[in-house]
Structures are given as structure tokens and as C-alpha cells.
């Protein structure tokens, strides 16, 4: 398949992931939607790498994976700490910084 298809699929997955971030209230599910968006970007990178014929896109996708893993570690640790303090994993519960 030509890279256009892969990139289009990446776009679709990215948008679905973005909607998920906006609509879900559970912090973990939001995190997972962010992972989905990252994966869609990875797909786009790999598609462009195959288009150009060199491996730079794959290297970048590799780095993206590494960074995503580190981010997940820290993010989930933060989530645990917040849950311990508030007994709630909903992002809507932290709404005091308002007008």
C-alpha cells in the first residue's frame, strides 16, 4: 500500500485519540488515549521512512517509543500519588483553579 493510506490511517487514529482525551473522565483512560495518539504518530513516521527510502523515520519512531515509555512511568506514578491523596481518579474532581 502506498504511504498515503498509512498516513491517512495515522490521521484517523490520531483524531480518535484526541477525542478520547477530551471526552473521557478517568485519568488512566485519558493516558491511554494519549498513547494511542503517540502510536498514530509513530505509524506516520514509519510510513514516511518507507516513502523516503531511508531509516530516519524509524529511528525517530524508536525514540518516540522510548520517550513514551518514560512518560508513562512518571505519569502513572503521579496518578498513584494523586489517587492516594484524593481517592478519586477522575480528572473532573480537580477543578478548584477557576474563576
Amino acid at each position: 500500500m502506498s504511504p498515503v493510506h498509512y498516513v491517512s490511517l495515522a490521521v484517523i487514529l490520531f483524531v480518535i485519540g484526541a477525542v478520547g482525551v477530551l471526552v473521557r473522565r478517568n485519568a488512566i483512560v485519558i493516558f491511554m488515549c494519549v498513547e494511542l495518539m503517540l502510536n498514530a504518530c509513530n505509524l506516520a513516521f514509519v510510513a514516511f521512512a518507507s516513502m523516503h527510502g531511508n531509516l530516519d523515520g524509524q529511528v525517530i519512531a524508536f525514540f518516540v517509543m522510548v520517550v513514551a515509555a518514560a512518560e508513562v512511568v512518571v505519569g502513572l506514578a503521579i496518578l498513584m500519588a494523586i489517587y492516594r491523596a484524593r481517592r478519586s481518579a477522575s480528572v473532573d474532581d480537580a477543578n478548584l483553579l477557576k474563576y
Partner: peptide, 17 residues
């Protein structure tokens, strides 16, 4: 305008999007 600052992270995320 400050009513837009409703404290909900998700509406801020919407604005960013």
C-alpha cells in the same frame, strides 16, 4: 471571559486542540 476558566482540564484540552 474568565468564565471560560472553569477549572476543568478537559475544556482546557479542548481549547488547546
Amino acid at each position: 471571559v474568565r468564565k471560560t476558566e472553569n477549572g476543568f482540564v478537559r475544556s482546557y484540552a479542548l481549547s488547546m486542540f
